[in-house]
């Protein structure tokens, strides 16, 4: 049986194209499972998973928890607000304390880039990165590509534009790695202040004119402004940002072709996209959410199968 090339999912950077295809094929199966009347399989009855969230999350956390429960794993949840982290405990100590209760896998979200990699070197458990600062959010990128594949048949050769706050976005970075690995063409679009100076070294192009970018692409992935990570003002007002980089229905309809609209959530309606765009037939935002569960089931299942 095929297996992943890695023990942990720390980022798309650390996996290969074969891994992505394996995850997709496994997710195809689980997507079928979660649409049955009995949505659960007994695969991971002997596995205990801790969801450790040092940053707020609703969608990702629920999605992971649901994925774990549908695989029949035992699940414990833990967030920094209720923990000894506030009392000064280190990350390694916190996680090792949890692991001493015989936990096999840790799903972690953390505000610091590289926190998952750091943890994987110091504790004995499979680590799934559920977002580490502005570094990576690999399961989001996988579910985004999976959704493009579902909608357009393939990712290879497709033209994807990622719009918004690229500088602070782990979703953008993981998507760039994943899409490039699968042979898609990628552009990023946003105010220059929110685009890393060296982004082109990752094999993407920069387009600061939204209309040009959207007329070029097959899919637009609209990101929100990461207000919680902005240390200074990168643009004068949200209003002015929306004037240049927001998409409303009239704008969408005026494009040369019908493009697919994606959004990793949470949406700031009226800022990066208006409600009628989010809810339009061109939007696959809710499909992304559904696919998130199937992708996370696949990732957890495949990593669990590597635990001896």
């Amino acid at each position: 049986m095929s297996e992943l090339s890695v023990q942990h999912l720390l980022g798309i950077k650390y996996i290969n194209e074969k891994d992505i295809q394996l995850i997709f094929e496994t997710a195809d199966h689980f997507k079928e499972v979660i649409n049955r009347s009995i949505k659960k399989v007994p695969s991971l009855r002997d596995i205990t998973i801790a969801n450790i969230f040092f940053e707020n999350s609703t969608r990702t956390r629920l999605s992971f928890e649901l994925a774990e429960k549908r695989l029949s794993a035992d699940v414990i949840n833990f967030s920094a607000g209720q923990s000894s982290v506030k009392k000064g405990e280190t990350l390694i100590d916190t996680v090792n304390n949890i692991l001493s209760m015989k936990v096999d896998m840790v799903v972690m979200r953390h505000p610091n880039p590289g926190a998952g990699i750091f943890l994987s070197k110091h504790v004995k458990a499979a680590i799934v990165n559920a977002g580490d600062g502005a570094h990576e959010h690999p399961t989001q990128a996988l579910l985004d590509s999976f959704s493009i594949r579902e909608k357009l048949g393939d990712v290879a050769g497709k033209k994807i534009v990622i719009v918004g706050d690229i500088l602070h976005s782990r979703v953008a970075l993981s998507n760039i790695f994943a899409l490039r690995l699968q042979g898609a063409q990628v552009k990023v679009c946003g105010p220059k202040t929110l685009i890393p100076k060296h982004i082109e070294s990752l094999g993407v192009e920069v387009e600061t004119n939204l209309r040009k970018a959207l007329n070029w692409c097959d899919v637009a992935n609209m990101l929100r402004i990461q207000n919680e990570r902005l240390d200074i003002s990168y643009f004068p007002t949200t209003r002015e940002y929306t004037q240049q980089f927001g998409v409303n229905k009239a704008f969408l309809d005026s494009l040369d072709k019908e493009i697919v609209i994606m959004h990793p959530g949470p949406i700031n309606r009226g800022v990066e996209i208006t409600s009628d765009v989010a809810d339009s037939k061109q939007s696959i935002i809710l499909n992304q959410v559904e696919n998130g569960v199937a992708i996370r089931m696949a990732v957890i299942y495949l990593l669990a199968s590597k635990i001896k």
Binding site: P113, G114, A134, H198, L202, I232
Partner: peptide, 20 residues
């Protein structure tokens, strides 16, 4: 700013803000 590593290809890949 709050950057702590050199600004370049590596910092971009790692999602770390860089010191130019």
């Amino acid at each position: 700013g709050k950057a702590e590593v050199h600004e370049g290809i590596t910092s971009t890949k790692l999602g770390l803000k860089g010191i130019p």
